[in-house]
Design a protein around this nucleic acid. Structure first.
Length: 798
RNA sequence: GCACCUGUGGCGGAACUGGCAGACGCACUAGAUUUAGGAUCUAGCGGGAAACCGUGCAGGUUCAAAUCCUGUCAGGUGCACCA
């Protein structure tokens, strides 16, 4: 009898640690497996059970891999730079370094209590100078290659956080950190030229195994579209107006042009524009609108007509009026469009508002009601008339545009360059020096890390400048190039920086010569399986794939892609079915669950509660089901009986089910299969030692402590955690008899038991031997017999 | 608006390639045990007296549909005036 569940868990955790059981080896004859989970941000609140679910998936896979004889790297670390820590630092007057250390300690304690098989010898912390040294190194390489650059532009700015945000961080016009409205502000900004990698990031998706949903979100984010640039002549001006369109085939349907309010052409010809005053007023009005307003008021089109500027249709020579409107964005395409109201709903709405002409060029639809975007025969389009296929029409038009030298095929992306600087203290300092003579100069590599200077003033300045800007001793420096007086860049990097390459550092975490030893990188890359949350699929995943591909082009890493496979777990919701949050008071602390039920129960429950990839609400009472399961399992040591083969078939089917389900992340059904096996053992009243040792190993990845104890009790050699994974034997898994369903005309009419290998004839004999079924068939003519072996017999009768 | 995902008992969820809907667990009911509560064990547990009816709804294909097709409704996620 196993007592004392409370002490079993720490006991085995210590034994594993003393044996260095889960430490990966860097040179090894075994096949390698690199499993990666998203490292946590160590907030002051500690972990909640959602973290536990997020890590438990690959924890089970990693433990199974070890038992299957793999050399497993399953690391953990902390993504510790970032605003929440800095904000608490300001609030409580404590240095973020101290808070970070405390939080990491708390998280580590929670993780260790759950018994995760992380390789604790490789823990990393992105705020450690031996780590961020290399984050800065990568930035300098990008700077050297022209991929990190500075530009003065309109940026997303959060007035509350006093910080510049990337497009990714300000989706929906809301600050990702505090939720307040983001405003547009002109600022000097560091950018990373991620757009240069757009095609590579897109192509790379073909070589990896991501969940389809994840792949699609990445594709949407990159947003590649193919179309054409077309240059429209302007009446009386030699300059042309360039537009981007994906539907150059509708060129003959153009009845007006629309430019973004900020379009520079307007300023260049301000003296020709008689209503320039109105233009400027409209522009100002648009700038005041938040992103939110611009996107919410989709249907109400506003704008004004430009008097004094007129475009000319390149084929018909007709005059085309030009408007400005904020439904055209300066940041996409050329900032100007050719409007084809007959076939574009936005242009249609605008035309209705402003009384512009609507000329259909594709047959079909009813343009008196709405724009028609379907296919059809081309009309009113000179050389395109009669073409019914969109592709052909586009190709034909492109050919004509090229011949006349007024247009060309073009590709555009929704993805924008990555705004990379933040005006904050708790981030990696950007290692750049501004020299009056030499311009921007990178800090020499041998001077890295460029350390965060000590201070107790972390607040950003009123004008949104970095706290570092106030620190004379940090700011003033000599130019590494000319030796003259110079000033340091005072902005820091965004939180996404450190997490963009952390999986590389786990491979060689203490190296101070380079990011990681090239031989080790070659051995461990790519990450075989990466699991994390859906919320990181478009930002973190895109950023880190970009950095990885850059490092590949640099020759630092040996693979084009960092992650061979990516999956995502569903959220753990609160008991009330909504997202867990402090403010709603529905957060479950894993420590509380471990206190009352133990780590094995917690681990089993987070995987049993539902489909791993789906969100599921926490249920205190359901946890008890897993508690009973674990206790009933432990009690099997008192039920050892003779080997009689009764359990063999089911045992082998369970081996197969559990093995396959783990690979497919169907942990809930894997556990259900073991519960079913356990029920069978209880019904029988005993289990033989060998079978119990098999079940113990199957359960080990889920409930490693109690299985270790049972293994030990049964006299198993070594640790159960590294014992060989049970092998499925098909010949032993066979069932002897099966019960098949008997249908008459598709309706279930009875069941008969036949031999597992019996064919249709034997099945038919069994059907006729059944009294009820024979009666039902009395006097009927059997027209058709459908026999599905092992499943059913369907008789169609008259 | 567009794209994707999800709709199955009181609840979380199972169901291979179209082949016995409701595995496994929770809750619940009855019984046993217990001074009591709790815990544990045994049995039952979609609806209906039954014929039958049941996988959001309405059609369709098929010997057979939770599963495939068409339409529709609801919830979720992502993107969003992207030309």
């Amino acid at each position: 009898m196993i007592h004392d569940f409370k002490n079993i868990e720490p006991k085995w955790q210590k034994a594993w640690e003393d044996a260095h059981l889960f430490e990966a080896s860097d040179a090894d004859g075994r096949p390698k497996f690199y499993g990666l989970v998203e490292f946590p941000y160590p907030s002051g609140h500690g972990m909640h059970v959602g973290h536990i679910k997020a890590y438990s998936g690959l924890e089970v896979v990693s433990r199974k891999r070890r038992m299957q004889g793999y050399n497993v790297l399953f690391p953990i670390g902390f993504d510790a730079f970032g605003l929440p820590t800095e904000n608490s630092a300001i609030k409580f007057g404590v240095h973020p370094r101290q808070l970070t250390d405390e939080n990491i300690k708390k998280f580590t304690g929670q993780l260790k209590r759950v018994g995760f098989s992380f390789d604790w010898s490789r823990v990393i912390d992105t705020t450690d100078e031996s780590y961020y040294r290399w984050t800065q190194w990568i930035f300098l390489k990008m700077f050297e290659k022209g991929l990190a650059f500075r530009d003065k532009t309109l940026v997303n700015y959060c007035p509350k956080c006093r910080v510049v945000l990337s497009n990714e961080d300000s989706q929906g016009g809301k600050c990702d950190l505090c939720g307040s409205e983001v405003v547009q502000k002109s600022k000097d900004v560091w950018y990373l030229r991620i757009t240069e990698y757009a095609d590579k990031l897109l192509e790379g998706l073909d070589s990896v195994d991501y969940l389809p949903m994840i792949r699609q979100q990445q594709e949407n984010w990159i947003g590649r579209s193919t179309g054409a640039f077309i240059d429209f002549p302007l009446r009386g001006i030699s300059e042309t107006l360039r537009v981007y369109t994906t539907r150059c085939d509708t060129l003959f349907g153009v009845t007006f042009m629309v430019m973004a309010p900020e379009h520079p052409l307007l300023d260049r010809y301000a003296d020709r524009i008689s209503n320039m005053k109105d233009v400027l007023a409209y522009r100002e009005q648009c700038a005041k609108k938040t992103e939110f307003e611009r996107t919410q008021l989709v249907k109400d089109k506003t704008g004004i007509r430009i008097s004094g500027l007129t475009a000319v249709h390149p084929f018909t020579g007709k005059d085309i009026p030009i408007f400005i409107s904020d439904y055209v964005m300066m940041g996409y395409g050329t900032g100007a469009i050719m409007a084809v109201p007959a076939h574009d709903s936005r242009d249609y709405a605008f035309a209705k508002e402003f009384g512009a002409e609507i000329i259909p060029v594709i047959e079909g639809g009813d343009i008196s009601k709405e724009a028609y975007s379907g296919d059809g025969k081309m009309i009113h389009s000179e050389f395109l008339n009669g073409i019914t296929d969109k592709k052909t029409a586009i190709a034909r038009m492109l050919e004509e545009l090229q011949k006349k030298g007024i247009g060309e095929a073009a590709v555009q992306y929704k993805m924008k360059d990555w705004a990379f600087n933040r005006q904050r203290y708790w981030g990696e300092p950007i290692p750049i020096v501004h020299c009056p003579n030499c311009g921007m100069v990178g800090v020499p590599y041998e001077e890295l890390p460029l350390r965060l200077p000590p201070t107790d003033r972390f607040e950003p300045g009123e004008g949104g400048e970095s706290p570092l800007a106030k620190m004379e001793s940090f700011v003033n420096c000599v130019c590494p190039k000319c030796g003259g007086q110079a000033k340091r860049e005072t902005d820091t990097m965004p939180q996404w920086a450190g997490s963009s390459w952390y999986y590389l550092r786990y491979i060689d975490p203490r190296n101070d010569e380079c990011i990681a030893d090239p031989e080790k990188l070659k051995y461990w890359l790519p990450v075989d399986w990466y699991n994390g949350g859906m919320e990181h699929v478009t930002r973190h995943m895109i950023y880190s794939r970009f950095w990885h591909r850059f490092l590949y082009d640099l020759g630092v890493v040996p693979t084009k892609e960092p992650y061979a496979k990516r999956t995502a777990q569903g959220l753990v919701l609160g008991a009330n079915g909504v997202k867990m949050s402090k403010s709603l008071g529905n957060v479950v602390d894993p420590n509380d669950v471990v206190d009352s039920y133990g780590a094995d129960v917690l681990r089993t429950y987070v995987l049993f509660m539902g489909d791993y990839e789906q969100a599921a609400p926490w249920s205190d009472s359901s946890v008890k089901g897993c508690k009973r399961f674990i206790e009933r399992f432990a009690a099997l040591t008192d039920m050892i009986g003779p080997e009689d083969g009764d359990l063999t078939g089911l045992l082998h089917r369970t081996i197969k089910k559990v093995s396959d389900d783990i690979e497919n992340m169907k942990f809930n059904t894997a556990i259900a299969a073991m519960m079913a096996f356990l029920n069978e053992v209880y019904a029988k009243g005993s289990i033989d030692r060998e079978s119990l040792m098999v079940l113990t190993r199957l359960l080990s990845p889920f409930a490693p402590h109690i299985t270790e104890e049972v293994w030990h009790t049964l006299g198993g050699s070594g640790f159960c955690s590294t014992a060989p994974w049970p092998v499925y034997d098909e010949s032993k898994a066979k069932v002897r008899t099966v019960e098949i369903a008997v249908q008459i005309c598709g309706k279930l009419r009875g069941r008969v038991t036949i031999g597992a290998d019996d064919g249709e004839e034997e099945a038919m004999v069994a059907v006729m031997a059944d009294e009820g079924l024979r009666a039902a068939l009395e006097g009927k003519q059997i027209l058709k017999k459908i026999y599905v072996p092992g499943r059913l017999m369907n008789l169609v009768v008259r």
